[in-house]
Nucleic acid binder design. Sequence first.
RNA 1: GGGCCCGUAGCUCAGUCGGUAGAGCAGGCGGCUCUUAACCGCAAGGUCAGGGGUUCGAAUCCCCUCGGGCCCGCCA
Length: 491
Amino acid sequence: MTDETPLEHERRSKVARWRSEGREPYPWNFSGRVPTETVRVRCSTLSSGEEAPGETARVAGRLRALRVHGRTAFADLDDLSGSLQLLLRADVIGEEAYQQWVADLDSGDMIGAEGAPALSRRGEPSLLVRRLELLAKAIAPPPEKYHGLQDVEERLRRRYLDLLASPETRQRFRVRSLLTRETRTFFEESGFLEVETSTLVPVAGGGAARPFVTRSGYLDQEVQLRIALELALKRLIVGGLERVFEVGKCFRNEDLDTTHSPEFTMLEAYWAYADYLDMRALTERLYARLATRAAALLPEVAEAQEAARAFAGGFLTIDFVDELERTSGVSGILEKTPDQLRELARAAGSTVPADSPPGVFLDKLFEHYVEPNLTRPTFVMDHPISTTPLAKRHRRLAGRVERFEFYFRGFELGNAYTELTDPDEQERRFQEQLEARAEYRFVYDADFIRALRHGMPPTAGIGIGMDRMVMALTGAASIKDVILFPLVRTS
RNA sequence: GGGCCCGUAGCUCAGUCGGUAGAGCAGGCGGCUCUUAACCGCAAGGUCAGGGGUUCGAAUCCCCUCGGGCCCGCCA
């Protein structure tokens, strides 16, 4: 180990000493442990300086701090349930054992302890230790104990350090897990079947993003990583599965910013015989439930509490065209020619290519004039048809589709529509996209058209970005804060 | 892709006008039986991201490279 620091050298020599004494610094198990929380609860009925007579508890975790006062020492032990003070006394564990432990323990070590629940004289819940066990020697030291790991790059590249130093990070990812489970439960209770479709596909469709491209050696042909779940799940609706949902990774070969990650988790659900208004009602119930759950799990996080209040109050509903015309001061937006829309988009600061399809300009205008203001939960309804090639035309409003997107805190959380089920119209819409600029092309999926020709029932579909959902409900500022190992350049 | 900012000990950070590297934590040694960012004393710890330049002298000024952050653009 030529790159070993003096500090690591010191800790390694402790490992060597343990081995030479016939003790194992990396043992195999530690049985019978309870969460430190159990001991804390037990201590709540003791008075200061009192120990629970004749009781024994075993706890295990990471040593965060060690405060040695001659023949008494205080150690802080962290486990997933929280933290507990260990009380080490020479007169309890014996002078020799005491001196050895005090000399051998370092912050970061994994240890197990057995002893009696006790309250220190200062009233701190503690375990008066009778036996200690080293469960793993930490050669490398943990991050600084008070400030923790501040360097953003290190937090992302070495998430284990972020997790072990920051209870907030641990809690955020536990909440993510629980919200994902809650979402699954919600859709299952609503009669949806969870499925898993393929991540590797011949051609990635269902959106307008650049895919990751790789190769199958077995097939000797190019394969792509999916960018959406849509076309696969709609085939399942054609096949008669009626209500399906999938939670899975999608991949888009684009830049990373605070709300976009090249690898992200998408939920999509398809509901046969329903329309987008049914789906809107379902969405409202889902978010009210999730926000309540997140707020209960994060009582001290102001953003989580705000989100719960906001979603409990229901969504605002606005019309895409009305709102855009109101905020931009431009009327008759649907009657504008592509050239006029391009000029309006340019005036609003967009630099998208001039030969983009008109729907792109409308999206840009909306993003510029409306999106930043959508801080409360808001449904945006009934988009212009040119923005949305996979949605069914509106049953009443000319030039529109039956679609809603929903927003919170100024960013999009999801997107839903009454699905386009007419195979010939779908074919025409794909064709229109094909005529547009190459990089905005929807993939022409001929087999998907063929599936529609067999008859797809009226269906509502929705896509929800799970990472953004967790951001919105936990108050995370960046999508990287809710992805355990976001893609970063290798150093 | 454009603009701005950042990179100093394992970690958290100072470093003035260009004058030859500082503190706290962690670790070592010594002291201490109720601390909780424990405390007190002593000693140790550096490729100042990397490379080049200016200069008698560069952590400091200039250029390039690498990595990161924020904003904008792009990607529904």
